[in-house]
Design a protein around this nucleic acid. Sequence first.
DNA 1: TATTGTTATACTCTATAACTATA
DNA 2: TATAGTTATAGAGTATAACAATA
Lengths: 130, 130
Amino acid sequence: MAAMQRGLARLLPHDCPAGPTAVLALLKHHGEMRMNRLAELLGVDMSVASRHVTHVAERGWVERKPDPTDRRSRLLRLTGEGEQVLRMISRRYVDTLSTALSGWPDEEVGLLVSLLARMQADVGRRLPAD
Amino acid sequence: MAAMQRGLARLLPHDCPAGPTAVLALLKHHGEMRMNRLAELLGVDMSVASRHVTHVAERGWVERKPDPTDRRSRLLRLTGEGEQVLRMISRRYVDTLSTALSGWPDEEVGLLVSLLARMQADVGRRLPAD
DNA sequence: TATTGTTATACTCTATAACTATA
DNA sequence: TATAGTTATAGAGTATAACAATA
């Protein structure tokens, strides 16, 4: 597991680690959202989401806009540069992964993904309280 | 991925994080070995392995013995207390995971494990140089 | 000179708690 | 009082580089 995560991390360019990259991808797929929602989609605490957003906001890849309906809240928006960065990362990622798995039948790739998702859900529901 | 690793980490008791636990398990299954070999089995840098070993050695779970054949080297040995701790951790881990996956047919569990192992191997072989 | 292992430094990810501003 | 978000602090993981001791 550790080795796999380390491997995936190496697929990312140096100025955008895994956390901030996930922010870009989620904003691309879901459009504008609040910190609230972003943290939920990332599956992390809001303090963590906030730091990832700071990373991408400092580089001009994401904009923190005021929310007209609630002045405590911010609307997060992917900028044009953010989209470009995400495209570069995605290309690199997809190229490497598709090359690595090029020997796999499509059904097995799909199977792996669905089994992983089920395991994550099942284990998450049964974690001990401690 | 992050969520899964966080979940698995929560299965471990507070005094023995994932890294040190892996040290105990590897010494149990492979017997005495040098730092050298341990780092290779863990898939991490030797500096990282050294810190994990320090963690378990300070608690008396692993012993750093001199290597008669090479005085630069150390032989790592799991102590009796180390075995007990590992047994407690394993029980907790297996209980939770087997409960969580109790609805899974045996073939699917085996399938998931083999697919994961193959993906890790394939991706590792194709990582970009950068 | 090369190798074994440790330590110092630094970076990423994570959560909890304290804080500000607004509902 | 409760909620949205930020920041400070701390703990876990990782790697690189500098170092000591020994081959």
